[in-house]
Design a protein around this nucleic acid. Structure first.
Lengths: 105, 105
DNA sequence: CATAATCATAAACCATAACTTATGATAAAC
DNA sequence: GTTTATCATAAGTTATGGTTTATGATTATG
């Protein structure tokens, strides 16, 4: 797995999480997001850049606007990595339980 | 859903992620983690506190030691929340696709 | 009882990152 | 062609968070 955790970092910030959720709800322009959230337009642009580099969203130019959508591929990558991580964690946990049971016999 | 994202924040830091992975591999004491990783013992304690408050790990005193384990319940909560989040995101994405198709007919 | 080991917390420090204002570039509208 | 709207980037400030050293509390060890 070559996933680099960028998605975790991206979604760890509350403002950025809100941006993502709004974009996930329906595609939106930067201006729309800036109007909706209580931060400046450059702040929105910056958050979108982080989300973009984490492949959680994708920009699509429409005239002077940039419409942002979720990127299902990036989302899938992150999901796969997390599924594996806590799959491993839960497997290890089950092993511990079993070892403990054997000891107690 | 009342999940408060603490798990995302917890796993966004590389050191903390490493701590979690080591604990997930097998239960470990604070001293063991401090010996294994290139950070001080207080740093380890601090990271464990964040992971604990996110309910990703659980402490179990054994003499003077504190043995940390993964907490399957907290892990399950985070997983459920994420599954719902990107479930919603992917549903919304599919809706957009369908709307676009209808428009193009 | 004295010493050593384990751990959590507090204080201080520093790097990073989240914001703001300012600016320039591109595209639409008039 | 001028103006207006949209957006990204740069510079600078503030806030946050990860780290270390110092310390005290608790538990085992001799």
């Amino acid at each position: 797995m070559v996933y680099d955790y960028a998605g975790m970092v991206a979604l760890a910030d509350p403002t950025r999480r809100k941006v993502f959720e709004l974009v996930a709800e329906e595609p939106r322009s930067v201006a729309n997001l800036a109007r909706t959230l209580p931060v400046s337009q450059p702040a929105i642009s910056h958050h979108l850049k982080v989300l973009r580099e984490a492949r959680l969203v994708r920009a699509e130019p429409r005239g002077a606007s940039n419409i942002y959508h979720v990127d299902p591929h990036g989302l899938g990558e992150m999901r796969a990595w997390l599924d594996q991580m806590w799959g491993n964690a839960l497997d290890a946990f089950r092993n511990e339980i079993n070892k403990a049971k054997e000891r107690d016999q």
